[in-house]
């Protein structure tokens, strides 16, 4: 009896493995950032609206903040845009834009069309700084704590579920900062 059942059990096991593998395929495409738990790289980049006035990633020390990678060429950024509006309204921390591989005129037009909800935007037209952040697609959203440590990275457009998750995480970071 056992001899008969063994191949069947192995077969069912294999099928189960394949089904689980197929369902988590999307998940596995996400590249976990090795930067989590590490200080955000020190970047100095021009601002979108005031190119001569450089913004630095280390000037935000003392409060948690959000860095959101976007581009006017990025379709998913349009999808998540309503959640960026909600986030900057309700999170109580600055939501900074990271305008990636874009053109200034296109970016400004996009913001006029859909609304500018970000505190300000850092621009990286060449994509050099984005490599230091390990950015590999837009949109990506980083949560940085008051000590300048990257605590969370959300890859892909923010939706209802990830918005709720981000709000909880930001709440934790704000509590930590006020202690």
């Amino acid at each position: 009896m056992i001899r008969l059942l063994t191949p069947l059990v192995v077969f069912i096991g294999l099928i189960a493995l394949l089904i689980v593998g197929m369902q988590s395929a999307e998940e596995r495409k996400r590249v976990d950032s090795p930067l989590l738990g590490r200080p955000i790289p020190n970047l100095e980049l021009p601002r979108l609206h005031e190119p001569d006035n450089k913004a630095r990633t280390d000037e935000r020390l003392g409060e948690p903040w959000v860095l959101n990678v976007w581009g006017s060429w990025c379709q998913s950024c349009r999808v998540e845009h309503p959640y960026i509006l909600k986030l900057s309204e309700n999170a109580g921390v600055p939501v900074v834009g990271f305008n990636w591989k874009d053109e200034r005129a296109d970016a400004l037009r996009w913001l006029r069309q859909f609304g500018d909800a970000w505190a300000y935007h850092m621009v990286d037209f060449e994509g050099r700084a984005a490599i230091d952040l390990g950015v590999y697609g837009a949109p990506e959203t980083f949560l940085i704590d008051h000590r300048g440590i990257i605590r969370h990275k959300h890859i892909g457009p923010i939706d209802e579920q990830s918005y709720a998750d981000l709000m909880v995480r930001i709440g934790t970071l704000r509590d930590e900062a006020s202690q």
């Binding site: 590249v31 976990d32 950032s33 090795p34 930067l35 490599i131 230091d132 952040l133 390990g134 590999y136």
Partner: peptide
Amino acid sequence: MVERYGDFV
């Protein structure tokens, strides 16, 4: 590359 994108790269 690994410092920025992890072993996966």
